[in-house]
Amino acid sequence: MLHRRIRNRSDAQDLTSETFLQVVDSSLDPRSFQEPRAFLTTVAKRILFHFQRRQALERQYLESMAALPMPCVPSVEDQALVIEAIAEIDRILHGLPLPVRTAFVYSQLDDMPHEEIAARLQVSVRTVSRYLTQALQHCMQAQLR
């Protein structure tokens, strides 16, 4: 299934290995599955979704780097570190509504004050405070998982 969707044998093998590792690392007993094939398919689809999302993030980042003048482009190593950080931030913020994620990114990465975030999102400063509280709580819960 993965090889047909990805069209890259090595990525398909990596994702198959990741699927296997997630099943082995889970606290579930594989012998208790009534539909083991359906369970594996669900796990594999989830892993494929995250893989494709990460590829899209990486592609967007690399496109933005290509638009920079040559002296401003970070080294390949720095780019890899940034891509890892972006993927981790995306993983942690996944599941939050878009306005909440946007407010959090503006606040934490762009260091915008609440008033400017409110103006950009066209919401009240109080709503921005609620968004940031929600995002911070979400991040703390993600760290506990």
Rank of each mutant, 00 (worst) to 15 (best):
L2Q: 06
L2I: 11
H3Q: 15
R4W: 02
R4D: 09
R4K: 09
R4A: 13
R4E: 11
R4T: 09
I6M: 10
R7H: 14
R9I: 07
R9G: 10
R9C: 04
S10M: 12
D11K: 05
A12G: 05
D14G: 04
D14T: 11
D14Q: 13
L15I: 07
S17A: 13
T19I: 03
F20D: 09
F20Q: 09
F20H: 13
Q22N: 07
V24G: 04
V24K: 13
V24T: 03
D25N: 14
S26A: 13
S27L: 10
L28Q: 15
D29S: 10
P30Q: 12
P30M: 11
P30S: 11
S32F: 03
F33R: 02
R37K: 15
A38T: 13
A38E: 15
A38Y: 05
T41A: 15
T41Y: 12
V43T: 09
V43N: 05
V43D: 04
A44T: 06
R46V: 04
R46T: 10
R46W: 00
L48C: 04
F49W: 05
H50D: 15
F51K: 05
Q52F: 05
R53S: 09
R54Q: 15
L57T: 05
L57D: 07
E58H: 10
Q60H: 12
Y61F: 15
Y61H: 07
L62R: 13
L62D: 07
L62W: 08
S64H: 02
S64W: 01
P69E: 12
C72V: 02
V73E: 01
P74D: 06
P74I: 10
P74H: 04
V76H: 03
V76S: 11
D78H: 04
D78E: 09
Q79E: 06
Q79R: 13
A80Y: 01
I83E: 02
E84P: 00
A85H: 07
I86Y: 06
E88P: 00
D90A: 14
R91V: 01
R91D: 12
R91T: 10
R91E: 11
I92N: 01
I92S: 08
L93Y: 04
L93E: 05
L93A: 11
H94Y: 14
G95Q: 06
P97G: 07
P99V: 14
V100N: 04
R101D: 02
R101A: 08
T102I: 09
A103P: 01
V105W: 01
Y106R: 12
S107I: 01
Q108L: 13
L109A: 14
M112F: 13
H114M: 14
E115D: 12
R120G: 03
R120P: 01
R120S: 12
L121M: 08
Q122E: 11
S124W: 00
V125G: 01
V125L: 07
R126I: 07
V128T: 03
V128A: 02
S129L: 06
S129N: 05
S129D: 02
R130E: 11
Y131V: 08
Y131R: 05
L132W: 02
T133Q: 10
Q134N: 11
A135G: 05
Q137E: 15
Q137T: 10
H138Y: 10
H138M: 14
C139L: 14
M140P: 00
Q141P: 00
A142V: 06
A142R: 10
Q143P: 00
L144M: 14
L144F: 03
R145I: 10
